[in-house]
Write a protein that binds this DNA or RNA. Sequence first.
DNA 1: TCCGAATGTGAGACAAATTCATAATACTAA
DNA 2: TTAGTATTATGAATTTGTCTCACATTCGGA
Lengths: 301, 301
Amino acid sequence: MHLEFRHLRTIRAIHQAGGLARAADLLNMTQSALSHQVKGLEDQAGVELFVRRSKPLKLSVAGLRMLKLAERILPEIDALEEDFKALKSGKTGRLHIAMECHACFDWLFPVLELFRRAWPDVDVDIRAGLAFEALPALMREEVDLVISSDPVQVEGMMFNPLFDYHPMFVAAASNPLAGKDVIVAEDFRDQMLITYPVSRDKLDVFTEILSPAKVEPRGLRQVELTAVILMLVGSNRGVSVLPDWVLRDIKSNADYVTRPLGPGVITKRLYAATRVEDTLKPYMAHFLKLGRSEPVKLQRA
Amino acid sequence: MHLEFRHLRTIRAIHQAGGLARAADLLNMTQSALSHQVKGLEDQAGVELFVRRSKPLKLSVAGLRMLKLAERILPEIDALEEDFKALKSGKTGRLHIAMECHACFDWLFPVLELFRRAWPDVDVDIRAGLAFEALPALMREEVDLVISSDPVQVEGMMFNPLFDYHPMFVAAASNPLAGKDVIVAEDFRDQMLITYPVSRDKLDVFTEILSPAKVEPRGLRQVELTAVILMLVGSNRGVSVLPDWVLRDIKSNADYVTRPLGPGVITKRLYAATRVEDTLKPYMAHFLKLGRSEPVKLQRA
DNA sequence: TCCGAATGTGAGACAAATTCATAATACTAA
DNA sequence: TTAGTATTATGAATTTGTCTCACATTCGGA
């Protein structure tokens, strides 16, 4: 049975119009075409859809069954078209974010809260699973935005700068290094270093300080959660290097000391990588704007 | 946007098969045709339905939205086809009955009870409203069966005989006519006659007795319900003529007398009129069988 | 950088849907 | 009944759309 949407519309129109000729008008086609179509449909279905004995053509039992289907399905099609229209105009869409940066939760969450309120119809998600390669996933449209501090030139991708930050040294107030104003690579030799569980090329402390100086810390410990890292640091089980925005809460805490890394001032920039065709979408533009301004405000607060 | 079921099937197949070429196999068409179709669909929708960057073609966000629709709608289509198949094989259908015979409730109800148990999927109804013309309604498929005792030759209709009955005279035991063994037309001259509220040509007492003899009863009273007629007769407010099956309950009641009409024995036959094309449907055949056998059993009980 | 697999393109064949003109049929009102 | 009107059916020609075939293109991995 070769049913088509056309047929459902026909059934509905004939029912509404109460007759074939009027229905033909409704559907902008000739009465003849409708007659042919109806006949073909009945042949296909092998069932009489209409009562032909009476002149203003009327639905039969089977026809009514089909009408019910039509009235259930056709609005769904319209809904789909509405959704597509919204998609095209950018009112709706998907914003699945992959973070290459563990500590980014801290500012990303407040930003996403603001975003959700402005774009309730956009499907938001964060993929913290750093196991997979974020940029290829972005290309494959498995995610729509990647937070990263390592911009690369890739066709079809765009690295939108968000804000600058400084990797900061953090240790317990009781740690001997608390006496120094600036921490340099050599200072790590006697320390247990606590980092997120990612490869060294994703960790500022290695890329900016230790690797260039070819210094290896006394020991290394990998911890998932920022709060746990701070706890361990607080009890002097090790030291760490974290973005400054993470440390705003403990700057005024007497148990900790935070120090800039040296010798020179180290500044890093965070980027949001997107597919070029997405960059112009209104909700994406809005998210980028929030991602530029909000974290800065947070740092000041 | 010119969506068709074909497209929904395509979306689903591509998702299932995980690629355009494999999907083409699934749908028994060339990969080329699918490619054309998909392109056309995307043009129509104005939305990218697929991620083309990676080679085994994959659904995009919009594509997934459409997939959801497909998975909701396609099973419904299948269900419809199932229903139609069942309709064709006659498992399901409609049996709306019109009665030209008021008293038929008495045997029809038990018959319908039996029928409902055997054909639960057939939509059963009785239209007692005798206001409308039953046979034209049958033709127009407003009803599917007409109980009648006046067979007529009509193209496309069939009068299936059910059973024979005898119109019987009934009166109060105190009525003078109780003394007679057989009641003839002249006997009605002094009586108040109680009938159903239908035209004379539908009443056995007129068609069989009074009209031929050109006798008019003393008075006429029209009452809707059989039980009320019997009540009035019991209190000797009038006499009546009813089919014998209605009177089986009062045959043994000392308040009433029932007498045959004369001079000759009067036998009438009840028919079930159907449209010829319905007559072969299994459920219809079954109903006719029940209509032939059950009322006879009832009369004996 | 090359190979193989997967998708895209264009022309022609074919099927299906539509239209126009007209016939057949049912309803309505006198 | 019957004429008149409204409604549906039919047939042939035309248009539209979809498929296949053959070939071009692109992508991903060795």
